[in-house]
């Protein structure tokens, strides 16, 4: 017997279907994960000796003796970029005509749009979680205790949803996977125009100014506060606020674009 499906059940069915697609392409998950882990290992290997335990008592001791704690947020921000896959998933459905099939059925347009974002969110949690595990394995030890990992993961999640919103908006607007892929270009300014390797105070000139306007700066600093310094409510608040604002703006952008895409021509 048939019965009316609620929005949430529709969303759950479509999310499950999208998850199956992701599971069937495990290799597609690897590049971003490998890059994030690569950053962690390479930066720790290259700079850990200078800014880690050996820097104790010097002006370069901004990592409080544990450079993994300091650099781990950079890898986490990189891992959270995996949320951008949401737009790619959605555009694949548009390009293949699956989107149109669902549009011809009496199911919620929003369930069709939100399902890939759900999977993107799950992907962010999974990849950021794996990087945190790797970080712990090589010596990460949050200054606020293990709850610090959860805080870092939660900021990463919000930040990742921001990327998801951006990629969905870009993908829907361009109608092509290339458009959604373009979201990943945000990665470079986001990561490198920020206090990636040293604290903001150590940046000079234009980079210092750029970092001040880059929301990634506050996200990284928020994560670092719990990893390196201990409880710093104002820094943590700025981290959450930046992530939330970024996500709110891009998700609004995504909603507007998606609404236009699902309207009848």
């Amino acid at each position: 017997m048939k019965s009316k499906r609620s929005f949430l059940v529709q969303l759950q069915i479509l999310t499950k279907r999208m998850t199956l697609r992701v599971v069937r392409r495990p290799l597609a998950e690897l590049p971003n994960l490998i890059i994030s882990a690569f950053f962690l290992f390479v930066y720790d290997g290259a700079l850990g000796g200078v800014f880690g335990g050996n820097a104790s008592g010097t002006p370069f001791d901004f990592a409080n003796g544990n450079f993994v704690n300091f650099i781990l947020p950079v890898s986490i921000v990189s891992a959270s970029l995996s949320g951008a896959a949401s737009g790619i998933y959605l555009v694949e459905d548009i390009e293949s005509g699956v989107f149109k099939r669902y549009q011809s059925m009496p199911i919620s347009r929003w369930a069709i749009i939100l399902a890939p974002m759900n999977v993107g969110a799950f992907r962010v949690l999974l990849q950021a979680g794996l990087i945190l595990l790797i970080g712990k394995f090589i010596g990460a030890d949050p200054a606020v205790g293990n709850v610090g990992f959860l805080i870092v993961l939660s900021i990463a999640f919000i930040w990742g949803m921001g990327f998801a919103g951006y990629s969905v908006a870009a993908g829907v607007k361009s109608g092509s996977s290339q458009g959604a892929q373009a979201a990943t270009f945000l990665f470079f300014p986001a990561i490198f125009l920020a206090p990636t390797f040293v604290p903001r105070e150590a940046l000079k000139g234009w980079l210092e100014t750029a970092a001040a306007y880059n929301p990634t700066t506050y996200v990284i600093e928020g994560m670092r506060s719990v990893m390196v310094q201990g409880w710093e409510p104002d820094v943590l608040f700025r981290g959450y606020l930046s992530a939330c604002l970024f996500a709110a703006i891009t998700l609004t952008f995504a909603v507007i674009s998606a609404r236009k895409a699902t309207e009848k021509a």
Binding site: R21, R25, S96, G97, V98, F99, K100, R101, S104
Partner: peptide, 15 residues
């Protein structure tokens, strides 16, 4: 009330 099989409706090849 309707069933639709359009020329360009897609089928998910991975499923």
């Amino acid at each position: 009330k309707i069933g639709v099989a359009l020329q360009d409706t897609g089928i998910d090849n991975l499923l």
